[in-house]
């Protein structure tokens, strides 16, 4: 990551402000809001997969958990501030427990994939079967396949009558995404973030250097889940209903596709991948010639085969080749080094 943190923050703020001003002129804010929320969801997996090397097949579990936590808490409390906080905390705690179980058991790649996938399925099956009246938390019925409608949506903290909706809600979501983005930037620049990247590159080496790999992975996993939970709560507010489909495998698959297409190991890639593909899906949904799922699948296969690094790193590479100052290649450096030595000798 080149450039200093201040420069990074400045660029992020300016770009965000520009986008918040310009984008509503192109796309309706209702659609934009969900694109922003998906961007945040993409970023949550981009953080733990791209920088932590933890491939989670069940990021949708935390997304759904955040949404359900918000809906249930909002019905019981009737005000949205505490439910928003809970919607971040509950998935984070759940992920910390799950992560501790997996990482302290030294499970890796495929096994990690199976367990996260299975946990998502358990949640999906369980929530799907809660249609009966005996499944109640406080005054909120879980509602099974039909989900939970009619909860208190986002309001100005302290005033349950002042709803935030429409354009104002879009601004809230966009600023939330910008804040999360900055938070992720700060996290990645801290020693914690650098060590997380180190763990991704070589776990054994980092643990031999004395870092507690298991604890660090667990914490990173929980942070990712917290972001996904926030995205879930925002999504619940946007849709005004939560359904078990939030937990579905299809949702998990989509998050992974966003990250692959956008580019792993970048912060921007998953956000752009999510927003871009979700918008593409929205456009494709308006025609009936070709099935939507078919195109999504085709995109994933083609990217894995031909552009496994994703769009953003490829574009960045192209930019560097075309315009950037070329860093000296290894051969040049070695040659120059040798020449200097000869000069001295």
């Amino acid at each position: 990551m080149p450039g200093s943190l201040q420069k990074d923050v400045l660029i992020a703020v300016v770009v965000t402000a520009l986008l918040i001003w310009l984008m509503p002129l192109l796309i309706g804010t209702y659609t934009l809001t969900v694109l922003v929320i998906y961007g945040m969801l993409g970023l949550s997996l981009g953080l733990i997969w791209g920088f932590g090397g933890i491939l989670c097949f069940g990021q949708a579990a935390f997304f759904g958990l955040g949404a359900y936590t918000y809906a249930i808490a909002a019905i019981n409390i009737g005000e949205s501030t505490l439910p928003m906080i809970l919607a971040v905390l509950v998935p984070a705690v759940f992920a910390a427990l799950l992560g501790a179980m997996m990482f302290y058991g030294r499970l890796t790649d495929v096994y990690l994939g199976v367990i996260t996938l299975v946990v998502t399925l358990i949640l999906f099956k369980f929530i799907n079967s809660t249609a009966g009246p005996q499944y109640v938390i406080g005054t909120a019925r879980l509602g099974g396949f039909n989900g939970i409608p009619g909860f208190q949506t986002l309001n100005v903290p302290g005033d349950p009558e002042a709803y935030i909706w429409g354009d104002a809600y879009f601004y809230v979501c966009a600023i939330a995404l910008a804040l999360v983005y900055l938070l992720v930037s700060v996290l990645l620049r801290s020693s914690f973030g650098r060590i997380a990247v180190g763990i991704r590159e070589n776990e054994t080496r980092l643990s031999l250097m004395g870092y507690d790999v298991r604890a660090r992975k667990t914490v990173l996993f929980a942070v990712g889940a917290a972001i996904a939970g926030l995205a879930g709560a925002l999504f619940a507010n946007w849709g005004e209903i939560v359904t078990p489909n939030l937990f579905s495998l299809g949702q998990s698959a989509e998050i992974i596709i966003w990250c692959i297409v956008g580019g792993l190991g970048t912060r921007l890639g998953p956000i752009l991948g999510a927003a871009g593909l979700a918008y593409l899906k929205f456009l494709l949904g308006q025609q009936s010639l070709v099935d939507n799922t078919l195109i999504t699948g085709l995109i994933l296969v083609l990217f894995v085969l031909f552009l496994p690094r994703g769009v953003v790193p490829a574009l960045a590479g192209l930019w560097r080749i075309s315009f950037g100052r070329r860093p000296l290649g290894r051969i040049h450096q070695a040659r120059r080094h040798r020449r200097r030595e000869r000069g001295h000798g």
Binding site: V290, T293, L294, G297, L298, L300, V301
Partner: peptide
Amino acid sequence: GLSLFFIG
């Protein structure tokens, strides 16, 4: 990806 393709 193939699985999504075949579903479609």
